[in-house]
Design a protein around this nucleic acid. Structure first.
Length: 274
DNA sequence: ACGAGGTCCTGCGAGC
DNA sequence: TGCTCGCAGGACCTCG
């Protein structure tokens, strides 16, 4: 589940503990999350390095090391990144790094669908170039959202979740933004009119900001960088609310659930999303 | 160029 | 009680 607001929350939480700290001893419990690098090279590249910065790009955590390389962690579905203080072990720990400042960094991933990369500056440039614009940057205007949706017969919901078109939006926030904008998720992306694009832009930006304020959405696995559940699940209007009343139309209109779009759970109100 | 579907991986809850 | 099955969601891949 970690989408943009969740990864942003994790980055903000772990940043103060990581920046300036040295990775003294690194343990890799499961190697299958590594992409493009083998275990020995990975451990060699990390141990003894210090952390210069912690950033987020789309749904990736970007940990910039002192030598210019970047440790990229993409938690995908069940990944979490936390700072641990005690010495409890975790059967789902994938990577742990003891920090010179005390405590340790832990990447945990039950299903290990997550991906870990170690990229130099050029490789990172190529990687990030394939991802679309960040929706919370100033430069992300309704016109840029319109451009992201243009030229696609695919459903607008699928377009929103396409990382090449737009960064950071996954299933939960795509559902929520489309409900708030009053748009039918199955509409072909290119049929969304300019006024509708403006509505969708407002809805999307507002929801992402609001979800960050609430420290993300915990349905099951997501944890913040301090190991806690988020709060935004209490604020969801459609996701996970199949059969319940629509908050805009009233209790007599029920939220519907379909898997017709990309075989993913799509929640919408047939009464107010057109 | 596009959509459909398989793949990675594991836990959980529904149904029998 | 204990089993099987489908589903969860992100991103990649292959096939037609």
């Amino acid at each position: 589940m970690p989408e943009l607001p969740e990864v942003e929350t994790i980055a903000r939480d772990v940043r103060p503990f990581l920046v300036g700290a040295t990775l003294i001893h690194v343990r890799l419990f499961k190697s299958d999350v590594l992409r493009g690098i083998a275990r020995p090279a990975f451990l060699r590249a990390l141990e003894g390095r210090s952390v210069a910065a912690v950033e987020r790009r789309a749904k990736h955590l970007v940990i910039l090391l002192s030598d210019g390389k970047r440790l990229i962690i993409q938690p995908r579905m069940t990944g979490s990144l936390t700072i641990e203080r005690g010495d409890e072990t975790d059967p789902y720990a994938v990577i742990e790094a003891d920090l010179s400042t005390g405590g340790r960094l832990r990447y945990r991933d039950v299903r290990r669908l997550g991906a870990v990369h170690l990229l130099g500056a050029d490789a990172w440039e190529r990687y990030t170039a394939r991802i679309g614009p960040e929706p919370l940057e100033r430069s992300f205007t309704p016109a840029r959202l319109g451009a992201a949706l243009a030229g696609g017969s695919l459903a607008v919901k699928k377009a929103l979740m396409d990382q090449r078109r737009l960064a950071g939006v996954g299933n939960i926030y795509a559902n929520e933004a489309l409900w708030r904008a009053g748009l039918d998720p199955s509409r072909p992306a290119r049929t969304i009119t300019p006024p509708e694009v403006r509505r969708l832009h407002r809805a999307l930006v507002a929801i992402l900001r609001s979800a960050i304020r609430r420290r993300g959405t915990t349905v099951r696995d997501y944890r913040t960088g301090t190991g806690e559940a988020g709060e935004f699940q209490k604020r969801l209007d459609v996701y996970g609310r199949a059969g319940l009343g629509c908050r805009r139309c009233g209790p007599r209109r029920r939220i519907a659930l379909t898997h017709a779009i990309d075989q993913r759970a799509t929640y919408f109100c047939p009464g107010c999303q057109h």
